[in-house]
């Protein structure tokens, strides 16, 4: 993998009046990687994307897309991005779908008309209806076409499968995988449906209250999250650090927990308190991400 980053933010901070939406977020999406951005609602996932699109201005820090500053080279950066916003409804409700596609197509020299048509057929979208009359699922699909048809180098997807029924969801993911195969594309996707992107994801980042508390590649996950089977002596209680790592309850003899932290570190901590670690097994991508989102931040 080359050292170039498709998306790179450096100590990005954004405040809304009294709320801090982003705190010194330094996010990296390597080229041609698929980066899943996870976190609770309001953690700041949408804000990161809006800053990259220069729809919101950061108070501090920088944001770059393909080496271009998102503010100073805004138009050039946006020419290389396909954006699916969180809100499925498109503002131009009074336009017909075909008019809207033609309108956006005029702005992108790399718009592939046959590809747009193929996507429309795959998504079974009729073009004669007004955008405002589309259902949430149809509107989402239209937005996906708008984002994919000009084959941008970077895709910013904010909850792309939100509002789609199960059949369309899997079709969307297959379309995405095919799209990636057609040309080098980097993807930053914010989603709650972690399991959907389980097989696609290369990197994962966790946002909590505006801070990027974890950012790692998929292969590094087993080093940081594991299923620990532990045997404990009588009257054993967990230390505060172990509870932050994910130890729950008051185990009697045997217990199994999903713990977050460096493996050697955790084994040491457990052993020091008298527990015996039987095994540490890897955890599914979905469970690992959930554990990362939920674990307490060690002071």
């Amino acid at each position: 993998m080359s050292g170039a980053d498709a998306v790179r933010t450096e100590a990005l901070s954004k405040r809304y009046r009294r709320d801090t939406a982003l705190r010194a977020v330094s996010l990296r999406v390597p080229e041609t990687a698929i980066y899943v951005l996870a976190g609770a609602n309001g953690a700041g996932k949408s804000t990161v994307m809006k800053v990259l699109m220069n729809l919101e201005r950061a108070d501090e820090g920088t944001a770059e897309v393909l080496g271009m500053d998102s503010v100073r080279c805004g138009p050039q950066a946006r020419a290389q991005m396909g954006y699916v916003p969180e809100d499925a409804r498109h503002p131009y409700g009074w336009m017909s779908s075909s008019q809207l596609l033609a309108h956006i197509a005029a702005y992108h020299r790399s718009w592939d008309v046959s590809y747009a048509d193929r996507l429309r057929r795959t998504f079974e979208l009729r073009l004669d209806r007004k955008v405002g009359t589309l259902s949430k699922g149809e509107a989402r699909r239209l937005q996906l076409i708008l984002a994919l048809a000009h084959r941008p180098a970077v895709l910013l997807l904010d909850e792309p499968t939100d509002g789609l029924d199960p059949v369309v969801r899997s079709r969307t993911l297959a379309v995405l995988a095919e799209h990636l195969a057609d040309g080098p594309t980097s993807v930053l996707v914010a989603t709650h449906q972690i399991h959907e992107f389980e097989t696609l994801a290369d990197y994962v980042g966790i946002l909590r209250d505006g801070s990027l508390i974890a950012q790692l590649s998929r292969d590094e996950l087993p080093n940081v999250v594991g299923r620990y089977r532990v045997e404990v002596p009588e009257g054993w209680t967990a230390t505060r650090e172990l509870r932050s790592a994910g130890v729950r309850g008051n185990p009697v003899r045997e217990a199994e927990w999903t713990l977050v932290g460096h493996r050697g570190d955790l084994i040491d901590r457990l052993t020091v308190t008298g527990a015996l670690v039987h095994s540490v097994r890897p955890v599914s991508f979905d469970d690992a991400v959930v554990a990362l989102i939920a674990h307490q931040v060690t002071p």
């Binding site: 041609t32 990687a33 698929i34 899997s170 993911l173 297959a174 379309v175 995405l176 995988a177 095919e178 990636l180 195969a181 057609d182 097989t199 696609l200 994801a201 290369d202």
Partner: peptide, 16 residues
Amino acid sequence: SVRELAAHLVVNPRTV
């Protein structure tokens, strides 16, 4: 093809 398999398995084509 890489494309076909990636779409079928829904994985990053780079992985295939």
